[in-house]
Design a protein around this nucleic acid. Structure first.
Lengths: 233, 233
DNA sequence: TTCATAGTTCGATGCTAACCAAAGTATGAA
DNA sequence: TTCATACTTTGGTTAGCATCGAACTATGAA
């Protein structure tokens, strides 16, 4: 009985269209202001404000004030993973659109999942790193190997800084589009940042789609295959 | 915008206390009749009937008629996994009860997750099998090895029959209590069945808790450690 | 200070949906 | 056929909550 109550409490927070749209927007990973989220949800500011208060009270959102702005973001990765899993069920049993539009295809290929790369590209990267021994998989735990630390440092990531943080460096995250794991954690986030900094890929405006440039895609795939694909800076 | 709508649609189905209690009850893995679910949710039969219709229409439940009974069960494993992930968020940010009661402790140790073993025991089993090369982990894919096929057949499972079904033999399922994977799929379900048949463990009445008997626990742990722990029948 | 922007709080409205009782349908047993 | 059980449908009530406009607070800029 109690399990059901907890379940309902969390689910009902997600179960309102306005709130769900806000949460979906925040799956993009960037923190957004109350006004932006109001736009996103298609409601007025007062309404949005009330929703945001409920989501924050419920523990799904984290808020930081900056001047006269209030930036809202998903509370943590567990919340993001939960939303992905709900989206997964929705996608599985709601192929209302027969043909997956170009947008959906792009989402399946590469998208942002909170702050790291997901979709086929994300899964391919995860598998490649594991296969080359850059990360070690033990059950659901994923750990950086010595070899991996060297490689990723060479790629431009500050591994030491990542280790200092509370957030795990490596984590696997289940992918609804392919039902396999991809790389999350600060390493996953860092890699995506690098891809964008290197102009291998860019985020599509107002969407979670990640678009690789043709040369970026080539460089990305070369990197997956072998060490000489490294592009130091 | 569309993503949010889908999200809300599914989440709102779970977001009602009566429905959530029904779903939580069905996480036990056994199919239940409409009357039983009405009891579970604390509502009258007509109300329950309406809820069950909505859950079925929404694709979260599967119904089979048997005489004048209607048995309801979760639609598939993806739905079960989604519910676990929502429960995970609820558990993480809702430690309203400061002390985890004995019930919660037992749930963390060993519980049923739809039809297979979860909790610390489930995770330990998953890790042990992986460590001994009985299953091979590749990203989120889990596959039975030849060595594993031999071992599990010796343990009393009909591996060939499992391979004939559409359901995957091995699958990993993320565990909210320990944040690691445990073994799902028909192999996971089959193992739990064996444990119960061997009287190593039994299901606690009206709960998802799995209780190991003292000799059962010992046999279970011996099995995890080495091949000679095998208890053919 | 004064004005503007960002956000919250308040009060009122209206819609949705959860709920139950009673009547209706279907299946099985006598 | 008749009765009982299991469930669904219908109709009507009620409660919750999403929504908005208007007033209020707080931060920053002129």
């Amino acid at each position: 009985m109690k399990a059901g109550t907890d379940l309902a409490q969390i689910a009902s927070l997600v179960g309102d269209p306005a709130r769900a749209n806000m949460l979906a927007a925040l799956m993009g990973g960037t923190a957004l202001t109350a006004s932006e989220l109001a736009m996103e949800a298609g409601v007025t500011l007062p309404t949005a404000s009330a929703h945001l208060a409920r989501l924050s009270d419920g523990g799904l959102l984290r808020m930081t004030r900056q001047g006269r702005h209030r930036y809202y973001a998903l509370a943590d990765h567990q919340v993001a993973a939960m939303l992905e899993s709900i989206m997964g069920v929705a996608a599985a049993l709601g192929p209302r659109k027969v043909l997956p539009g170009p947008r959906d295809t792009a989402m399946r290929e590469a998208r942002i999942c909170y702050d790291h790369l997901a979709g086929e590209a994300g899964v391919a990267m995860f598998d490649a790193f594991a296969g080359r021994g850059l990360i070690a998989i033990d059950g659901d735990d994923v750990n950086l190997t010595d070899k991996g630390a060297g490689f990723f440092s060479g790629f431009g990531l500050d591994i030491e800084a990542m280790r200092g943080k509370r957030r795990p460096v490596c984590r696997s995250c289940l992918d609804w589009s392919v039902r396999r794991s991809h790389l999350a954690g600060s390493l996953g986030a860092g890699m995506l940042d690098r891809f964008i900094a290197l102009k291998w890929a860019r985020r599509e405006k107002n969407s979670r789609v990640i678009r690789f440039t043709p040369p970026g895609r080539a460089a990305f795939e070369k990197m997956l295959r072998a060490d000489e694909g490294r592009t130091g800076a």
